[in-house]
């Protein structure tokens, strides 16, 4: 066991992937000498060279478009989009090309491209630096969309994403980059074979009364809520979804059938957010087990506010517990 920050765990994961497979490339703005604005790629260019860790021109569509071309030539590019709000210039390449080209080719082409996106708020940033654009991408067939919430998953999931033959949009909870936890770095490849597949979710805290569904930055918030609710005699089960597309429906259903109550928590706006899909699926699959409607906690349906207001925008412990109260009040 090694203690790593989430950012360093991603760094170690990418380093391992690059050691394992010479076709793995890292590309993006400032990922080389600087090591990325969050230092997630720190030291990789020094160790793997400029041919494999590519400081690109400042154009997101160009990053994804050329990554597609590199993948067509047999490479496995890992692209960094510097901030969530800057993925939109690349949206066309991601949605019309990256997601759809394998189908267009009737399966003859594979595009193992990872698009890393630091996401979410809570760091006091200016506009476009705190967004949660996951639902745009979960709605796009052909993409896999995952979100890590802790250093251990970050280390494992980034390697699994790189190994996957499908394009993966990989969300990283930027405000958790500096949080530390133990990471089990296997000494042999047999170790990684035992990892939980990255398209499966995980119960990170078992409970009996309410299922809390979260991913990325909100997993920690839900764990804190579960601890606080314990004092009120309520047992919250926290599920870290990890994969949003595909969704681990089986795990979600199993948990909600057991608890009969569910609260979904994400930073993104509630209206048409990923929680809407979860609520609909749970209603279909768990209708007779539900003691209360599925409630969603998320941002208001507004643009992300100036940072002095972000504490009001982001779901926090109190808002999560408020929703828990409401599912018990039914």
């Amino acid at each position: 066991m090694t203690i790593l920050t989430l950012a360093k765990a991603l760094n170690e994961g990418m380093r391992k992937a690059m050691e394992d497979d010479p076709k793995v490339l890292v590309m993006g703005e400032d990922v080389g000498k600087l090591g990325g604005v969050f230092r997630v790629t720190d030291g990789l260019q020094k160790d793997f060279g400029e041919q494999r860790v590519i400081d690109t021109p400042l154009a997101e569509s160009g990053i994804i478009g050329t990554a597609i071309g590199l993948a067509l030539r047999g490479y496995r590019p890992v692209c960094e989009i510097q901030f969530d709000g800057f993925v939109f210039p690349a949206a066309d390449q991601i949605i019309t090309q990256l997601a759809k080209m394998p189908l267009r080719s009737l399966g003859k082409l594979k595009l193992p491209v990872v698009v890393r996106i630091p996401c979410g708020g809570g760091i006091g940033a200016v506009e476009h630096h705190s967004e949660s654009p996951e639902a745009y991408f979960t709605h796009t067939a052909g993409l896999r969309v995952v979100a890590c919430s802790n250093p251990s998953d970050a280390y494992e999931m980034i390697q699994q994403a790189i190994r996957c033959d499908d394009p993966v949009v990989f969300f990283e909870p930027k405000r958790r980059y500096w949080e530390k936890a133990e990471v089990d770095i296997p000494t042999s490849s047999a170790g990684s074979a035992a990892w939980l597949p990255f398209d499966q979710g995980k119960v990170v805290r078992p409970g009996t009364d309410v299922t809390m569904l979260a991913y990325g930055p909100m997993v920690k918030t839900c764990l804190e809520a579960a601890k606080a609710a314990e004092d009120d005699g309520r047992s919250l089960e926290v599920v870290d979804l990890r994969s949003l597309n595909p969704l681990d429906v089986e795990l979600v259903v199993e948990s909600v059938r057991k608890t009969g109550r569910c609260v979904v928590v994400h930073e993104a706006a509630v209206f048409n957010g990923f929680g809407a899909e979860l609520a609909a699926r749970i209603t279909e699959e768990c209708f007779y087990n539900l003691e209360a409607p599925v409630l969603r906690v998320g941002g208001p349906s507004t643009p992300y506010p100036p940072s002095r207001l972000e504490d009001h925008y982001l779901p926090d412990l109190d808002r999560v517990l408020h929703a828990v109260d409401r599912v018990f009040a039914f």
Binding site: G65, T66, A67, I68, G69, A71, R73, Y75, Q97
Partner: peptide
Amino acid sequence: TLHAVGYAMG
């Protein structure tokens, strides 16, 4: 055009 350039980089 971007795919072609990426391929050329490969």
